[in-house]
Write a protein that binds this DNA or RNA. Structure first.
Lengths: 347, 347
DNA sequence: CTGAAAGCGCTTACAG
DNA sequence: CTGAAAGCGCTTACAG
């Protein structure tokens, strides 16, 4: 960087961009805010200048002048604490600099749902982010729609038209994991399904069946157990899978909590993981590295998804304020297969 | 609220406070920032007015004019992911509105410590927050001191003079838990100790010995096991405690991860928790409600401690900027005993 | 569609 | 120790 003296606090302001583009600061501002009433020509020039100068809007300045900061609600029902913690980390990281206010409301059951929703609406939130499993509640989304409040659905397995969403491709993530197990040499692979009312659970299970079939492998009834995404349900499911004669050499659990339970059950039976049994999870929540052996799992970038949810929400709010329809953008984030200690070739 | 029209965006500004107190805005500003060069008289008047009007500084305005926002580093080594997530939740919540920037650096081992510290210093952070176990590293604190960078130590068992800190009273928290087990009727209580290089581990163990002794109970060698705060170390410790003849009817684990491991081992031995064995933890991290049965534990308000750490840090930075010495304030937060499903009277 | 002016709430830099 | 003036970066409200 050249050693010349800084004239102001911030290196590049919107004034610099305007000057560089040869337009007024107002026009530059309008372009930065996606305001429609700007000619294509100017829009392009400003965008180019902003990029060339690496302009970053000063959010303090913006929020100082703009009448109000965005108020974003996060409405959740019963996700795992670990998941929600990570998600909120992303939400707060992104909302902090933008000056947006975050209101978190929990609900369990229909009645408390009504109460929570009422509180959010009364606080006149500008938008509501719906982490799973509420992301799939038609009723919740319709209520919000009726109140003209934009929604961002997080980690839904079935994105809806006109409702913005962030997610990973659960189907392909699960396929990747099954293919990995296959490549390791496993043939008898067990599946612990997740709560069937959560759309990603369905996708992960379907990926299992499809990939096994594509490999020319049948799936025995005894090798599939229904779970509910909780540790406790994983305990029961793992017992079912491991008690039989022809027990699987690998178990694909639809999330980490149930995988952790599976390892606990296996240890209880004197089974070595991964020597006697490979166990893999999904999500890569903190429990994956808490337990021993550390879990091979599919990493879902939960923090990044929290950030993305806020960005999408801010965009929805702007659109609404300008009378434009919701973008209905569906952002698909990258999953990664994380190979740790709980997987190995079959005995 | 009266229905009169709002003159401006914010209900109460520093101008209102100044007018109410009959001083200039500058004086009001100085008082709000604890600037020393204000007479006692005016200081009192402004404070009273601010309180009367319920004045909340607009942080966007402040950060816009102030040359720079605070840059706060968080340097950590190897805490549990769950703990750090929760802690960061508090840090981000508090730093967001203040506009402070957070820089997180991880280090493992001496060499990477040097690298991480170098990055922080190069980014010219205004202060560094030290979560456990780095909160107890004299070397780290001295390096930071030498660079004239204020420190806030989090959850240290031995607060140092001149270094601000936030913590709970680990000793009394552990005493409360042991007394609870005693009251339940347990006499043979086992202890899983934590990493001895972490000061809170020492306090929790000492509380165990003292409380048992106060109850007139001896502690058998076989009823104490050394752990390292990890799940894996908890597995080994629990095996040691449960294999003997005269096994304990209750086990007090020095943290939740090791308690979770203990429950897994107990289940593996066919023991019912809490029917045959009571297991309790410490910290109340998310794992406490993930596992089954849910853990009775000592709640440490980690999120609130994250917020408090940022508040203390901002105060330290201000003091330093004004040439005053660090406050060396030690904030002690409240713990709570959370009674869930893993504890019951002895069989 | 584009712009000149004013001001959001606060604090810096200068006077006294 | 106290204050009047100016300005941080941005956008609202008004003109054209």
């Amino acid at each position: 960087m050249s050693p010349h003296k800084r004239r102001s606090h911030q290196s590049v302001t919107i004034l610099d961009v305007a000057r560089h583009a040869g337009v007024s600061p107002m026009t530059a501002s309008r372009v930065m805010n996606n305001n429609l009433r700007v000619g294509e020509d100017m829009r392009a020039r400003v965008k180019a200048s902003a990029k060339a100068l690496n302009y970053r809007p000063n959010l303090a300045g913006r929020s100082l002048r703009s009448s109000s900061v965005a108020r974003i609600g996060v409405l959740y029902s019963n996700p795992s604490a670990a998941y929600l913690n990570q998600f909120m980390l992303g939400v707060l990281e992104e909302s902090g600099p933008s000056g947006a206010q975050i209101m978190v409301e929990k609900c369990s059951g229909i009645r408390s749902q009504r109460v929570a929703m009422g509180r959010l609406l009364e606080a006149s939130v500008d938008g509501v982010i719906l982490p799973p499993p509420l992301c799939d509640s038609r009723q919740t989304i319709q209520q919000l729609d009726a109140a003209d409040v934009p929604v961002v659905a997080v980690a839904t397995g079935s994105p809806m038209d006109g409702v913005a969403s962030v997610r990973i491709d659960d189907y392909r993530g699960a396929c990747a994991m099954i293919r990995y197990l296959l490549k390791l040499g496993h043939r008898r692979i067990g599946l612990i399904k997740g709560d069937p009312s959560h759309t990603p659970a369905l996708l992960r299970a379907q990926a299992f069946y499809d990939t096994m079939e594509a490999a020319g492998l049948g799936v025995a009834e005894a090798h599939v157990a229904q779970g509910m995404f909780t540790y406790r349900s994983g305990l029961a499911a793992a017992r079912k899978l491991l008690q039989g004669q022809d027990r699987p050499t690998a178990i694909f659990s639809s999330n980490d909590d149930m995988a952790a339970a599976t390892i606990a059950v296996a240890h209880g039976m004197g089974l070595n993981v991964p020597g006697d049994l490979t166990v893999t999870g999904f999500d890569d929540t903190p429990v994956a590295v808490t337990i021993w052996p550390a879990l091979t799992t599919v990493h879902q970038p939960v923090i990044a998804m929290g950030r993305a949810a806020v960005r999408l929400m801010l965009e929805q709010i702007r659109r609404r304020n300008e009378g434009r329809p919701p973008s209905g953008e569906h952002q698909v984030m990258k999953y990664t297969l994380v190979n740790r200690e709980s997987s190995a070739p079959p005995p």
